[in-house]
């Protein structure tokens, strides 16, 4: 038995290098969430397009992705076949959780998809425009209750930035955190809160049916065919986008990074990937190379500033 075991081990050691061009994608979240779906969509497209022969997805959930990130850095340093999916939520989570590992320790590859937040009110609300909301907020910041996702998440950051941009003290924002968009949606529909702020996907069906009124979206520009104005169109100079990205392990050579860059570029232009984006209603926000590095750095600085302003980070 022992000999057999040893033989198996040795064969294993010999066979491992044979899988050279195969990626392992870590989704730092439980199966089913946005990052997991992104990772599994990448797996699907990379395999279907023949970019990579065999792609594995591993789930390492916890603490806004920071547990997965730490494990990724420890386990895969210098491994050119390891990828991790992440997103804007991670930027905030690293700061609020005082994570020992930051995004500076991985090799960012590209931003893949994204979604902007929308600010909605119940159909019966007296608030008709962003101006009405600004007026109410300026008169008494505490009287405007905002329903959105967890504290320190993208929705909370967007609400804080909104207040700051229109000249209201962000620490006065009366933000009510709900776990998951569904509960926030119920609170807005039931008229329990003044406004709701979360990803467009959470509110879309109710906006279309007329149960909710969208005051504005936080995106840089309007979605194609959408009649929801952006904040900048409404006179508030603010853009908040919740993006998802892919990054590689730390300690890669320039050639290794270039190879991954090329594979991801092939992925995002492939028909399979575009088809997946279409059916899931994901917005293509592909941004690679140095442009993404600059964008990431800017987002980290801005997020740190607002989290300090809201009082979540010291």
């Amino acid at each position: 038995m022992n000999k057999l075991f040893l033989a198996a081990l040795m064969t294993g050691a010999l066979v491992v290098p044979g899988f050279a061009a195969d990626y392992t994608i870590m989704a730092p979240a439980a199966p089913g969430g946005g990052w997991d779906q992104t990772a599994r969509a990448m797996q699907e497209a990379l395999q279907a397009e023949g970019i990579s022969g065999n792609v594995q997805v591993t789930n390492v959930p916890g603490a806004g992705g920071t547990i997965g990130l730490a494990q990724f850095v420890n386990q895969y340093s210098g491994n050119p076949e390891a990828l991790i999916v992440g997103g804007y939520v991670m930027v905030g989570a690293i700061l609020t959780n005082a994570s020992p590992v930051s995004l500076a320790e991985v090799t960012p590859i590209a931003r893949l998809t994204g979604e902007s937040d929308v600010i909605v009110v119940p159909a019966a609300s007296e608030l008709q425009t962003v101006d009405d909301l600004v007026a109410m907020l300026k008169a008494d910041p505490g009287s405007v209750s905002w329903a959105g996702g967890s504290a320190g998440g993208v929705d909370h950051i967007a609400a804080g930035l909104f207040a700051k941009t229109v000249g209201v003290d962000p620490t006065k924002v009366n933000y009510i955190a709900y776990s998951g968009g569904g509960e926030a949606l119920a609170a807005v529909l039931g008229g329990q809160v003044t406004v709701g702020i979360s990803g467009l996907g959470e509110f879309d069906a109710q906006i279309q049916s007329g149960d909710l009124r969208a005051l504005a979206s936080t995106g840089a520009e309007r979605l194609e065919g959408s009649d929801i104005p952006t904040l900048s169109e409404s006179g508030v100079d603010l853009v908040v986008e919740n993006w998802r990205m892919v990054a590689a392990a730390p300690g890669l050579s320039d050639e290794e990074k270039a190879a991954i860059d090329a594979d991801i570029e092939k992925l995002v232009t492939s028909a399979t990937w575009q088809g997946i984006l279409e059916t899931n209603g994901w917005q293509d926000m592909y941004l690679g190379g140095e442009a993404f590095d600059a964008q990431l750095a800017a987002d980290i600085t801005a997020t740190e500033a607002i989290l300090k302003d809201i009082g979540l980070v010291q």
């Binding site: 081990l9 064969t11 294993g12 050691a13 066979v15 591993t58 789930n59």
Partner: peptide, 15 residues
């Protein structure tokens, strides 16, 4: 079921 369970040398033998 595509569940991610820890792999060792023996599991890696299975493609």
């Amino acid at each position: 079921l595509q569940l991610s369970l820890p792999m060792g040398p023996i599991e890696r033998l299975v493609p």
